[in-house]
């Protein structure tokens, strides 16, 4: 190769130099997320990014929510899992449209994957879209998907100190659902302490206590969903 061939910067090959980039590593993901957000808002779709550890009861919460809101609000689901479509099948049985994303070894969903899922799923205008992220309280925190709100689900069978053990995910969440409340009598889980920890990390976080199995507290969750959807509509 000729030295400096057509290169208006006239840099000779083999010559070392410093290039200042000052570029956000997540900028590409953020571009995909922004495109998703635009696409969703044009169609007046409320998208929620659901985050939790494995086994927090996310899928039960989703199936119960879909059944409770049937006929009131169209709901579609993007289901992220490393392997299998077991959860997607459970949700499909409720009649809701589901798009599965198998991330393989990937520990989180990203904006690009969700963009493709939206194209296949084609959620209807004015609907509610649940994006069930991979069960993991660390990695998904960094990746914006284009959602309107982030919802963390924590079950009382886990430690009450999870909000301070995994502060990044709680800091970025809008709503905390404290699930499996029906098991509380059998456990030593300090609800007040857990909420206090969550508020130390994120003073704005809203907390709802519920049980997707017994149905206790689920009405306040449905109210939050419908109020949030109305707010989103007014915001258009």
């Amino acid at each position: 190769m000729a030295e400096g061939h057509g290169d208006h910067h006239h840099h000779h090959h083999g010559e070392e130099r410093l290039i200042r980039l000052e570029q956000d590593i997540l900028s590409k993901n953020n571009e995909y997320a922004a495109a998703n957000r635009r696409w969703l808002s044009e169609r007046n779709i409320l998208a929620l990014n659901l985050l939790s550890s494995p086994g927090s009861g996310k899928t039960t919460l989703l199936t119960r929510t879909i059944e409770a809101l049937r006929g009131k609000l169209p709901i579609t689901v993007i289901e992220g899992d490393q392997q299998t479509d077991n959860d997607a099948q459970k949700i499909r049985q409720t009649g809701a449209a589901v798009q599965q994303i198998n991330t393989g070894k990937g520990c989180h969903l990203d904006g690009h994957m969700v963009g493709h899922a939206l194209e296949s799923l084609q959620p209807p205008s004015g609907s509610l879209l649940f994006i069930e992220n991979v069960g993991n309280l660390v990695c998904p925190a960094a990746f914006d998907l284009g959602e309107a709100y982030r919802v963390v689900i924590l079950s009382v069978t886990e430690g009450e100190d999870k909000p301070i053990k995994y502060p990044d995910i709680f800091a970025s969440a809008d709503l905390l659902l404290l699930n499996k409340l029906d098991l509380l009598p059998h456990l030593q889980f300090d609800v007040e302490q857990c909420i206090d920890y969550a508020r130390r990390v994120n003073p704005r976080i809203k907390v709802l206590q519920l049980s997707a199995t017994s149905g206790e507290g689920m009405d306040s969750w449905y109210q939050w969903l419908s109020a949030t959807r109305q707010l989103a509509e007014i915001g258009q």
Binding site: H13, E15, I19, L21, E22, D24, A142
Partner: peptide, 16 residues
């Protein structure tokens, strides 16, 4: 209010 601490940035490159 967090003022800084979430940076995840490529600052510069040494290239040839």
């Amino acid at each position: 209010e967090l003022l800084s601490g979430e940076e995840l940035r490529i600052v510069d490159l040494q290239v040839e």
